[in-house]
């Protein structure tokens, strides 16, 4: 593990550092943050100072505190969505690849239809009907996103399914479920891990966009996309407060992308050897 880290190029190290920074902020939010999440501590839109490193927001809350807590809320929800989407997508993909026949056809057509519809519009329509709440948000985005995971896992699992060792397992009399868990899953891990990084970025940007439109996490919870929206008015006065949370979103996405790039590069090299 350490050896691998030592060989990592600069870009991957920067990416890992960014992710680590965010994870620390996420776990130790109450320790790091100098003030409370919804505590009003100063003037409205105060410039950055010793007391408030990044200034204050539209209600006089400390921006740095909000960003640290925002890491917690935004990243936690993104992780929930990405994990759920992976669970659903992988399961669907594996089932389609092992069962084949009409199951594969039915799942494939369903996914085609969902993917023919722009994700943002679909999410907006669903949210207008069922209303915005955190569980709804997680389930809706996860299901929409799982279609992309499904496509990839199905393709990967199809390749593995025709290998000799799966044939051997089948002849041994193992069931579909056993084959999925013991043969297909371990062999499809490398592309899936890289895909997880990419999906994480996508979901993260997507949730931020929804929050920015006022349809994601609801105030007074600190959330990066929502914070940009709340402070957007400041920019026309030449106050750059909304750039901080927006920058935090960009920062984490770049970090994850750098690590994914490195990982993809690594696994393609392993395959070549």
């Amino acid at each position: 593990m350490f050896k691998l880290l030592k060989q990592a190029p600069l870009s991957a190290r920067v990416g890992l550092f960014i992710i680590l920074l965010n994870v620390v902020a996420m776990i130790f939010a109450p320790v790091i943050a100098p003030y409370g999440e919804t505590e009003m501590v100063g003037e409205v839109w105060a410039p950055s100072s010793k007391a408030h490193w990044l200034g204050t927001d539209q209600l006089g809350r400390d921006m740095f505190t909000r960003i640290v807590y925002g890491a917690r809320n935004t990243i936690a929800i993104t992780l929930c969505v990405a994990l759920l989407s992976f669970f659903v997508g992988c399961l669907g993909g594996f089932v389609a690849a092992t069962k084949k026949g009409w199951v594969d056809q039915a799942l494939g057509r369903m996914v085609d239809i969902v993917m023919a519809f722009p994700t943002l519009i679909f999410a907006l329509m669903v949210l207008s009907i069922v209303g915005t709440s955190i569980p709804v948000l997680i389930v809706v985005i996860a299901i929409l996103d799982s279609t992309r995971v499904f496509r990839l896992t199905r393709a990967v699992a199809m390749d593995i399914e025709v290998q000799d060792f799966v044939e051997v397992a089948r002849l041994r009399g193992e069931g579909n479920w056993w084959i999925m868990r013991h043969e297909i899953l371990p062999n499809s891990l490398p592309p899936l891990v890289a895909e997880f990084g990419l999906r994480f970025c996508f979901v993260f940007l997507f949730i931020s966009a929804l929050s920015f439109l006022g349809l994601g996490l609801q105030p007074p919870m600190a959330d990066w996309g929502g914070m940009v929206r709340e402070n957007a008015g400041a920019i026309t006065f030449g106050i750059f407060t909304p750039l901080w949370p927006a920058g935090a979103i960009a920062f984490l996405t770049i970090g994850v992308n750098l690590v994914v790039d490195w990982f993809l590069h690594q696994s393609s090299q392993i395959r070549r050897q």
Binding site: S208, F212, L243, G247, I249, A250, T253, N257
Partner: peptide, 8 residues
């Protein structure tokens, strides 16, 4: 540019 949210 791809990593940035549009509003950023």
């Amino acid at each position: 540019t791809i990593s940035f949210p549009e509003f950023f």
